[in-house]
Design a protein around this nucleic acid. Structure first.
Length: 430
RNA sequence: GGAGAGGUGGCCGAGUCGGCCGAAGGCAGCCGCCUGCUAAGCGGUUACAGGGGCAAAACCUCUGUCCCGGGUUCGAAUCCCGGCCUCUCCGCCA
């Protein structure tokens, strides 16, 4: 959610910032609603002040043994008027919030303009794709041939976009997870947290996922609809929510958290897209990085977060590139975001394996995550950042495709072998 | 799931038959004084949000907030209803 005050004070700048991402047309209605809201607040507060003063004198009169009946009757009427004003105010507030929730975050000044993927900017590349000497196969072929990935059985018990991992593949999933968590906790200074995988509607809304992305999220069925829980589409949701409605002290910032959770996504509207293999699943594992910082720290912390995500692929010795999103290609909550794209020889292209975003105060404002400045004691909103460090399923794909050999076996990156009892190669079990 | 108890400021804790309670007292923090010794004493001070005034900061003022949401009342931390959470006992359970 954007700062209402900013919209009020400089609506043109806000509209300009939103030009590439949509929502600019909503600025006008925010302004109108805000104006009527303030009118209503003013009037009802004046009446309340009047009423409070009168109640005071009524109390005093009663204690003196007088009968302030006339005054009481008058205040009864004032009370009715206040009630009416508040009903109207509630309506306007709800509408204002509804509109505000539709507006995406403002891009950081360093974000390139543009409306589509084509205007994203590649910032750097690392590693050289292997020369295979044969045509590298996509992971789903490799995995099925090795008896490690089982799409048919997953579809039988659930539906498409689910996968069963057998034996060494299941182990590899766990090894990757463990490796990433160890790297981030031991070397990058993150604190590991374990969090709920189902959260309430308020938490989803504070994050920015509701109401905009309701159709992308799995939801539990409750007799009382208002108490439904949502399966997290990413650990970003519960981890960022950790400090909801808290005031953190500046010296404890930045907070750096890492969490491992499964992620659940409906993938509505992606029919036909990435249907093969386990690129796009309803359920996948992810190691997520979250930071809570002061406004001054956040952009530096974004840079180091991307580096932390990249480091995973460097240690796995898998090529990748880093892309800076243009304004129009960013997620709803992001002010600036980088994708790390891993090289997938089976597809012959780079595919997103991590997305690191600085949401600035967009989420913090909704969730009321604040900090008290070390000097001066001022309270202000924190900035929140999140990034995958990394998507485990896609990392597994990358390991399979990049490590494949002529005979269809797969060489395991050396950094993972300690987590696999020293296993060097995945081969077809005999 | 059943029965009971409870949710007050950074923490502890008091709030009578609803008014003078944004809330006693203690602790902690901050500022100052005093003191010359690893401490104590004295005085003051310390919540958050929103609106208005101000070019703005300081500041002034109003409103709201004693778990949350409704209600009763001229007036509610105090009464009523609903919800959430915590604790104890029982049941069930990985």
């Amino acid at each position: 959610m954007l700062d209402l005050r900013l919209i009020r004070e400089d609506p043109e700048a806000v509209a300009r910032g939103l030009a590439d991402r949509g929502g600019a047309e909503l600025v006008k209605s925010v302004l109108d609603l805000d104006a009527s809201r303030r009118r209503l607040v003013k009037e009802s507060e004046e009446l309340k002040a009047l009423k409070n003063r009168a109640s005071e004198t009524i109390g005093q009169a009663k204690r003196r043994g007088e009968d302030p009946a006339a005054e009481m009757a008058r205040m009864r009427e004032v009370g009715e008027r206040i009630k009416a004003l508040e009903a109207e105010l509630q309506r306007v507030d709800a509408e204002l919030e509804r509109v505000l929730l539709q507006i995406p975050n403002l891009p950081d000044p360093s974000v390139p303009p543009g409306t589509t993927e084509a205007q994203n900017v590649e910032v750097r590349r690392w590693g050289t794709p292997r020369a295979f000497g044969f045509i590298p196969r996509p992971h789903e072929e490799l995995g099925e041939a090795l008896g490690l990935l089982d799409f048919a059985r997953a579809a039988k018990m659930a539906k498409s976009r689910f996968t069963v991992l057998w034996g060494a593949a299941a182990r590899l999933e766990r090894a990757l997870t463990q490796f990433m968590l160890d790297l981030h906790t031991r070397e990058h200074g993150y604190t590991e947290v374990w969090v709920p995988h189902l959260v309430n509607a308020a938490t989803m809304q504070n994050n920015g996922l509701l109401p905009k992305f309701e159709e992308q999220i799995f939801k539990t069925l409750e007799a009382d609809e208002g108490r439904a829980l949502y399966m997290i589409p990413t650990a970003e949701v519960p981890v960022t929510a950790l400090h909801t409605a808290e005031i953190l002290s500046e010296p404890t910032l930045p907070r750096r958290y890492v969490a491992f959770t499964p992620c659940y996504r409906r993938e509505a509207g992606t029919y036909g897209k990435d249907m093969k293999g386990m690129i796009r699943q309803h359920q996948f594992d992810k190691v997520e990085l979250v930071k809570i910082t002061t406004p001054a720290q956040s952009n530096d912390e974004l840079e180091s977060m991307v580096r932390n995500a990249e480091e995973v692929l460097r240690r796995l010795e898998i090529p990748y590139r880093v892309v800076l999103h243009c304004a129009g290609d960013m997620g709803f909550q992001a002010a600036k975001s980088y994708d790390v794209e891993v090289w997938l020889p089976g597809q012959g292209k780079f595919r997103e394996i991590s997305s690191c975003s600085n949401c600035e105060a967009f989420q913090a404002r909704r969730a009321e995550i604040r900090y008290r400045a070390a000097s001066g004691g001022k309270v202000d909103y924190c900035h929140t950042l999140n990034g995958s460090g990394l998507a485990v399923g896609r990392a597994l794909i990358a390991v399979l495709e990049n490590g494949q050999e002529t005979d269809g076996s797969v060489t395991i990156p050396s950094v993972l072998r300690p987590y696999m009892d020293g296993l060097v190669r995945l081969t077809r079990p005999t």
